[in-house]
């Protein structure tokens, strides 16, 4: 496995303070390696977007990071904790080292400024020493990489289609050649044909520019195809993490299994599917023990009292996979 680029350790996020606080992200430990696509899947309210915003310290109040550290490993430099950066250091860190493509990125462009203005602004803010010709050249090159011809540079966002705006956003996220790109449901608002084209382009760009992607989505079938590794979140915790192929063929957590069975197949035999009974948990009143136990078909006494720890399962002695479940054979080693 390659060297880590972003290590999230025991990360906690609350909404609100004191007794009223809602624990949105609990004890998340996750490592993003260089050049990999790590998929983060979960339903709405599972804390996946909160985790992404927390890690980049973009969390709006009342969100509070209540613990944990995020260690960033710059190429050829000493690792440092993002949580300990001062405001000015953070300003330099954002976008240059870690960029983010937001949910509904189509609407995150400023409608009253040209694409070129917005793009050049990014470069000017982070690399003021560049001449304006060099900046324009860089922006043009980036747009070309994401498949937009350079003459569209001076268009306003409303003159572009949804897919093109999304490409501009991706281009803008990559323009400073960051090491980590966080993508929060980047293709949810797009049609499938467009979605596939943008993803194919992203894979190509990743090979060329060698950045790592944290890809957040609720569409597990997309992740299985697109990412190297997948982590599944439920009720603010990571319940399983494994290589995509392993997770798809042999998921260990009952929730991952249920989630995989929630997507009707397009090919192969048509089979009866059931989804998962019940509804996702309410963060204000989380079930005791394993958050999934009220919906779990295999739940037993221990599940409702003790919170399972994420660890390498006994049955598969594979350091690449982790699961948090009390079922026999899935309990962590040691």
């Amino acid at each position: 496995m390659k060297a880590p680029v972003l290590e999230i350790k025991n990360f906690n996020v609350d909404y609100g303070l004191g007794d009223q606080a809602v624990q949105a992200v609990r004890d998340v430990t996750l490592t993003l390696h260089r050049g990999e696509v790590l998929g983060l899947a979960g339903e709405s309210g599972s804390g996946k977007s909160t985790l992404a915003y927390g890690v980049t310290r973009l969390l709006p109040p009342p969100g509070v990071i209540s613990g944990g550290s995020v260690i960033y490993h710059p190429p050829g430099g000493d690792p440092y904790d993002v949580m300990a950066l001062s405001n000015s250091e953070l300003r330099a860190f954002r976008w240059a080292e870690t960029s983010i493509v937001f949910q509904g990125a189509m609407n995150s462009l400023n409608p009253v400024h040209k694409v070129s203005t917005q793009m050049l602004d990014v470069i000017r803010a982070h690399e003021p020493q560049l001449s304006s010709e060099a900046r324009v050249a860089r922006a043009k090159e980036m747009l070309k990489l994401v498949g937009i011809s350079a003459d569209r540079m001076d268009a306003y966002p409303h003159q572009l289609s949804g897919g093109m705006r999304q490409r501009v956003m991706i281009g803008m996220a990559l323009v400073l050649e960051p090491q980590v790109v966080i993508m929060d449901e980047p293709t949810t608002a797009l049609d499938v044909v467009m979605q596939r084209q943008i993803l194919a382009q992203l894979v190509e760009l990743r090979e060329r520019l060698d950045f790592s992607v944290l890809f957040i989505t609720h569409d597990l079938s997309l992740l299985v195809e697109f990412s190297d590794r997948i982590a599944i979140m439920y009720g603010g915790r990571i319940v399983e993490q494994a290589k995509s192929a392993d997770l798809y063929k042999d998921s260990l957590h009952p929730y991952s299994e249920g989630l995989l069975k929630s997507f009707p197949a397009l090919r192969g035999p048509r089979r009866e599917l059931a989804g998962i009974p019940g509804s996702p948990p309410d963060l204000r009143g989380m079930p005791t023990g394993c958050a999934f136990h009220p919906r779990c078909p295999h739940a037993f006494d221990r599940c409702s009292t003790e919170i399972p720890v994420l660890g390498v399962p006994e049955a598969r002695n594979d350091p690449n996979r982790e699961v948090a479940c009390w079922l026999p054979g899935r309990v962590p080693v040691g």
Partner: peptide, 25 residues
């Protein structure tokens, strides 16, 4: 274009992206 987990062997291969003359527009 639909996501299909059974197609693991061709993950994100740009050459296999469906042919479309208008870039999905």
């Amino acid at each position: 274009s639909a996501p299909d987990p059974d197609r693991l062997d061709r993950v994100g291969d740009a050459k296999d992206a469906p042919e479309d003359q208008a870039g999905g527009e």
